[in-house]
Design a protein around this nucleic acid. Sequence first.
DNA 1: ATCTCCCGCCATATG
DNA 2: CATATGGCGGGAGAT
Length: 823
Amino acid sequence: RNVLKTPLKQTATSQVVLTERQPDCQPLSTPPKPKETSPAEPWTPTSNLKMLISAASPEIRSREQRKQLSNSSTEVLQAKHCLQEHLLGDEYEKSQPSRKEKSLGLLCHKFLARYPDYPSAAQKSYICLDEVTEELHVERRRIYDIVNVLESLHMVSRLARNRYVWHGRHNLPQTLQALKKAGEENKYIQQIQMIKKREYEHEFDPDSERNEETASSLGSSEQSEMSFVELPGVEFRAASVNGRKYKSLRVMSQKFVMLFLVSTPQIVSLEVAAKILIGEDQLEDLDKSKFKTKIRRLYDIANVLSSLKLIKKVHVTEERGRKPAFKWTGPEVLPNIQDTKLEATSTTCSPPVSESIPSKEHCSKNLFPSKGKQNFTRHSSLIKLVKSIENDRRKIQSAPTSPVKMSTSTYQSLPVFPSTISQLPGITKSQLEGQSKTAEEMQMKCALSSPKPEPPQQPTPNQPLGVCPASHSSVSPVILPHPHSGVSYAIYLHPSQAHTVTTYSPGFMLQPLPCANVTGIKSNNSKVLNKITTEEGDNQIATAEPTKPLAAEERSEMKSETSSQRCLKRSQALQENNFIKRHRGDEESLGTSLTFFPSGYLIPLTHCTHGTKADCSNKEKAGMCSLQHPAYSSPITGVIPMTASELKTVNIPAFHITPLNIMLSPNSIAAAPVLSNSCLNSSNASSAQNPSSSALNFMLQHIGLIPAGVQVPANPVLQHMLVSSQAENTSHSSGNTNVQEGKVSANILHLGRGGLSANNFFCSLQPSAPKEPQEPQAVTESFFRTPGGPNSGSSLSTNSGGTERISQGTLYIPQRKLEVAED
DNA sequence: ATCTCCCGCCATATG
DNA sequence: CATATGGCGGGAGAT
């Protein structure tokens, strides 16, 4: 049949198509064409509203879409057929059905609009595939794609042949928690690193001897293979669920989610995800076609997850170019039961108070698990959603001052008990989203979390870090006795954005330097400085605005300044040449294209502890704090003396630097990364106790990274750094910050090349702008300051000017450049 | 050209 | 056997 090909698009050219089509009959499905605007949709008003909203949301289509929607609504025209073309001709733009309108993401929205996020027990809804397909005018096949993903999250479950039950997001928290755990057990973090490493080696070493070692190590870990993660409580009865069968899409979806939950910057590139997913099944065969297929599937899954707002697309830019990736925007999953705190932040944060959550209330709610309590019916939730969305929009579009979205991150572990807890590695960062929707979830979390976490469990199982044998992770965590408290991190923000910063933690560096070896650092050529930045697409503009000037400056400075970068370029060039030469067969090509390098690392700095966190947790504030502060935080990993196990829990690796206090300026944007003031403190712990050799190595590797140029003034130096453990990973960090909140600014620490010594690290933090200086002293306070609070008005002002100290921050060591851009 | 990813054939599973 | 599911990959829009 002629049908073999993908149907051509119908648009301008469509005429032909249309004609063709009509005559032809479509076998089963309804022709896409007719519908469009959704004229006759049976949806309820609410659902429509919801849909619109969602559509409008940044995540989803950008303004274009909105336009389309609005247009579409007005125009029903499609019926009109060709005329449109003539008339609209040019403008028409895309008013048509275009491919986007048929996207799985949009379809998913429609689908979701049909059901409440949190259906009350009473209103249990059932899903009849036939109805759905009919109402949404889609092929059945597509619905399966959606449903399968939803099933993987336990948002729906199959009852019987054509029948599914809608659970909504009630199970989400548990599901995510379970997935996170599973992900940790699978050692995904390690796998990710391994993949990266492997790639690197690949390039580097043409022949590569497949690293047996790595493989072997992984292999052991592997085992898990397919298993669909089920929720205990959830009724899964349904149909033969367990049958092995094909759950591939479901399993894949779960694994994909796991990847987000375990990785530190919660960003996962498709490439890596695909490799891991493939890898599990078959050891390596990087089959190109297989890879492609996997990618396709991931896109499908990603579209659904995006519709659920659990992730959003971003781009990770490295030296080589941009790579598609997704960032987790869903609720932060706490390790287990408890954590001390929960915080929520909104992804988009909007300042508007309305959305902001009153800490107290929330907390209280959280405390009470009462699920049933108020279920938000769809209604309320919608409303919230709407508000938040609108707010976001507004902000983004217009006001510079208005807050932009912030990424939040932060999180800290709050040590209830300072001494012991603080160190818990298990707790890493968490970001929460502050969306209204998620609010409930958050609450739940809160509820779950008991006031104090006990030492015992904290830990999540983790994988052993590098060296450690693959043996399983110990689930039970041992608590560490470290007296220390949290760690500080320096955060590096991209100038333009203040948003989030994250690091990708790549594993080893791999610079393709000819000489370099992974471990060795050698002098090396230069390593590149990596930066990570996140940008939001839509918002970008808006976001940028406020800071724009600064950002620009910064950039320029950075560029010019960093000699290291230059070096990089050179090295890159060299590399490239090599590559070219090398090109070998298939494998090679693939490898090359795929390869990516690790970008940078975050190094957790220990800092002094303050009780603040604890306080927060204790008090009602906690909620606030968490919410509000996005920035810095991370909990800690611990301080130095961590044991491997500890590290594991954290997943992070890394270096621990002894406590350091850095003053950050609120606006981090500041142009040059300069340090304004830095204070160093070494805490008692300071000296690291025993830095593991591996750690040192690691450090070394990075050395040289430092951009020479930088303007770093120098003063501040972090003096005592410790590296402890070998971990490679970076720490968790959330590196998000919100500009408005001001809190964070970006800063980076540069490692000087050569110097292992602490001296080498500089923090270049600069106070950003000119804001009013703030009192440095209140570190903690400042951190926790609520955005909305007194300062709410001026976002920047809040943190204003002064420099703040960062209690927790991450030190970011740049290696290669990595940027994350959100769409 | 690359990134996305829709479409729908067709193998399987299910009833 | 008829359907329901869903793996899979071609190849066309988007960028």
